[in-house]
């Protein structure tokens, strides 16, 4: 079981420059919403940005996390 701080820590590790907020949508630690603002997204498509985030969460996405609604923005878009 993952909680909000665990998800935040994983995202922070992959996006050290990033402004990251994570919310547990259902209180059951498996449906989250995350917003990541990072310069690493410059010039990258939405789908690829989300793939970057999923990659940073490793196998958490194939078990503990059932759903992750994502907002992925560059500092200028935020």
């Amino acid at each position: 079981m993952l909680d909000v701080s665990a998800v935040e820590a994983m995202l922070k590790a992959a996006f050290p420059d990033g402004t990251i907020t994570v919310r547990d949508l259902t209180g059951t630690s498996d449906h989250f919403e995350a917003s990541v603002v990072s310069a690493r997204f410059e010039g990258i498509s939405r789908v690829e940005r989300h793939r970057m985030v999923y990659a940073s969460l490793g196998n958490a996405m194939s078990g503990p996390i059932h759903a992750l609604a994502l907002k992925t923005l560059t500092p200028s878009e935020a």
């Binding site: 939405r46 789908v47 989300h50 999923y54 194939s62 992750l68 609604a69 994502l70």
Partner: peptide, 29 residues
Amino acid sequence: IKVFSNWPTLPQLYVNGKFIGGCDITVEM
């Protein structure tokens, strides 16, 4: 389908053979 698109969740939308995204991307678009 998760291996096919390198995308870990469902739903997955494809238009004209191209992977568009999951729910949040589709709604945003």
